[in-house]
């Protein structure tokens, strides 16, 4: 026995420690990428706005200032007011919450479905794979927006339907990426080694395939969030959302419906710009994540 590190309690080698180490290692690589950092900063900014909305917004977004209909930006109302006299700045700030939540929720649903379908299609035999791939192809071929509109109308208006509509349609990209990753993982020696040790299929899926698939799925999902926010804006703009819930798309919908869209630039610019910036933030981050997770350097 040596005097070197003594066998510590199992907790020291526990899963959390492992994750922390993995996270630290990941961060060291990620931070070298300037686009990634910019994207991440923008994201943090928007998330902060969403969380701190009550402290940032000067007024209740639904409060109507009867004396100020459709006013351009002023010191009282930073983004001006809409046709009901509501402060647009507060609306945009609170709208961040809803838009981001919808985006995340929809993407989460899409990611879960996509990952499950992906690993099942990739791991099990040809028959299952063909079946699932045909299903995926079906969802890819039909224009996503059309499908979402149909789903949202069927499910009734409101943000939950929007979330479900996006989630149930937007999983295809993730499914494909995950499936191809699973296919190559399946051939790796460590899967074979697990089988030789006596592991069953579900253990292997849970313990080996899933963790190795998570990085690509995650990178893909970040992009899906960007798309989800866009789709949410589109669907609420088309009137499928909940008029009582403030989202950026909802603001734009009112702008359109009230006819102010052609005259009141302050009505349209902030929500539009916000959507664009958030999507950009997610795209930059997702792109950089992809760079980190794709193994480009292989040891020979």
């Amino acid at each position: 026995m040596s005097s070197e590190p003594v066998l510590e309690r199992e907790e020291s080698y526990s899963r959390t420690r492992v994750y922390i180490r993995a996270l630290v290692a990941f961060w060291r690589v990620y931070r070298r990428n300037k686009t990634g950092i910019i994207g991440l900063c923008m994201l943090i900014f928007f998330v902060a706005v969403a969380i701190l909305a009550p402290y940032i917004a000067p007024y209740d977004p639904n409060k109507a200032f009867l004396s100020a209909f459709l006013q351009p930006p002023s010191s009282n109302h930073l983004f001006g007011t809409n046709e009901a006299g509501q402060d647009l700045f507060s609306q945009v700030v609170y709208g961040t919450r809803a838009s981001l939540t919808v985006g995340f929720a929809a993407a989460f649903i899409a990611a879960t479905i996509g990952t499950l379908i992906g690993i099942t299609a990739g791991y099990f035999g040809k028959l299952i794979r063909d079946l699932l791939m045909r299903l995926t192809d079906f969802f890819i071929v039909i224009p996503a927006l059309v499908l979402m509109i149909v789903l949202a109308s069927v499910l009734g208006s409101g943000l939950t339907s929007v979330v479900l509509a996006i989630g149930l349609v937007g999983w295809t990209g993730t499914a494909r990426v995950v499936m191809s990753q699973t296919l190559s993982l399946k051939e790796q020696a460590f899967v074979e080694a697990s089988k030789a040790s006596g592991a069953g299929d579900f253990y292997i899926l849970r313990s080996h395939v899933l963790p190795n698939v998570m990085p690509v799925a995650f990178a893909q999902t970040v992009l899906v969030v960007a798309n989800s926010i866009l789709y949410e804006a589109t669907l609420t703009f088309l009137g499928l959302g909940n008029p009582n819930q403030v989202t950026w798309g909802q603001i734009l919908q009112f702008a359109f419906v009230s006819g102010a869209i052609t005259t009141a630039w302050w009505y349209v610019l902030p929500p539009g710009l916000s959507i664009m910036l958030v999507v950009l933030a997610f795209s930059l981050t997702g792109y950089s994540l992809d760079l980190v997770f794709n193994p480009r350097v292989r040891k020979v």
Partner: peptide, 18 residues
């Protein structure tokens, strides 16, 4: 199974990198 175990060829891919 426990009585028969294996060591594989590729030390780089026979261990789960994660």
């Amino acid at each position: 199974r426990v009585q028969i175990q294996a060591v594989f060829q590729d030390p780089y891919s026979s261990l789960d990198p994660k």
